[in-house]
Design a protein around this nucleic acid. Structure first.
Lengths: 108, 108
DNA sequence: TCCATAGTTCGCGAGTTCGCGAACTATGGA
DNA sequence: TCCATAGTTCGCGAACTCGCGAACTATGGA
C-alpha cells in the first residue's frame, strides 16, 4: 500500500486532467467535491465496487484534480481548486457549469 | 459514404466534448483549427494513416467540436467556436491556453 | 492481541479505443 | 469514359479501460 502521492501544481497536464474528466463516474465525483463535500473512497454515486471506486480515486488523484489525506482509517478527498484554477483558469468552472446545466435539463 | 452529420448546438454534451479532447492527436487538431487554419482530413500533425485520421475527424465532428463541409473533392474543417463558446463558455479558450503553455514549456 | 472498517492490489474477462492496410465511394478533370 | 485524388468503411490485432471478487494492508478500538 503506497502512500498517497500527488503531482505538484506545476506538473499538472491538461491531457491528464481531460482524461480524468472524460468519464461519467469521475465527473460526478468532481461535481460533488465542487459542492464542498469531503468524500471518502466508498462514497461514489453510481454504485460501484470498492475496487473500482479505488481506481477512479487514484486516477483523479494522480491527474492532480484532488487531494487525498488520511484521517484515521478513512481517506478524505477534496478538490484542488486553487491549483486547477491556477494552471487551467476557468476549466473547472465551465465544466461544472455544463454538467449542472445538463442535469437540470435531464431532470425534467 | 454517409453525408456529414453534425449535432445541433443545443445537443452538444460536455461528456462527449471531453471525450473528444482527451486524445493527444485530436487535441492538436483542435489547436491548429483554433489558429484559424481550415484543415482537410489528410492534414494531421503526428503522421497517422488516412483511415485513422478519418476516425479522429469523425469523433471531433460528432461531438460537435467542428464543422465539416465538402468543397469539391476535399472536406474542409473549421472550429465550431461560437457553438462551443455558447454551450461551454470558456472551455475552449482555457484548454487551448493550457496546451499552448505546455508546448512552450516543452519546446525549450 | 484480535477484530472491524477502510482502502488497495491482483487477476481476470468484457468491451472499447486506436492503430493499420485493403477495398471501397465520391468528386472533378482530362 | 477513365483516371487521380480525397475520404470512408471494413476487418483485424494490440493495447487500454472498466468492471468485478478475492485477498491483501493499514488503522483504530475493544
Amino acid at each position: 500500500m503506497k502512500s498517497l502521492t500527488h503531482p505538484a501544481r506545476e506538473d499538472l497536464l491538461i491531457q491528464s486532467v481531460l482524461d480524468a474528466l472524460a468519464n461519467p463516474i469521475r465527473l460526478r465525483i468532481v461535481k460533488r467535491l465542487a459542492g464542498g463535500e469531503e468524500l471518502t473512497c466508498s462514497t461514489v454515486l453510481p454504485e460501484v465496487s470498492a475496487s473500482t471506486a479505488s481506481r477512479h480515486w487514484q486516477v483523479l488523484r494522480e491527474s492532480g484534480i484532488l487531494w487525498a489525506r488520511r484521517e484515521g482509517r478513512i481517506i478524505l478527498h477534496t478538490l484542488r481548486r486553487e491549483d486547477l484554477d491556477f494552471r487551467f483558469p476557468g476549466l473547472l468552472d465551465c465544466v461544472l457549469a455544463a454538467v449542472e446545466e445538463e442535469e437540470r435539463g435531464t431532470a425534467a
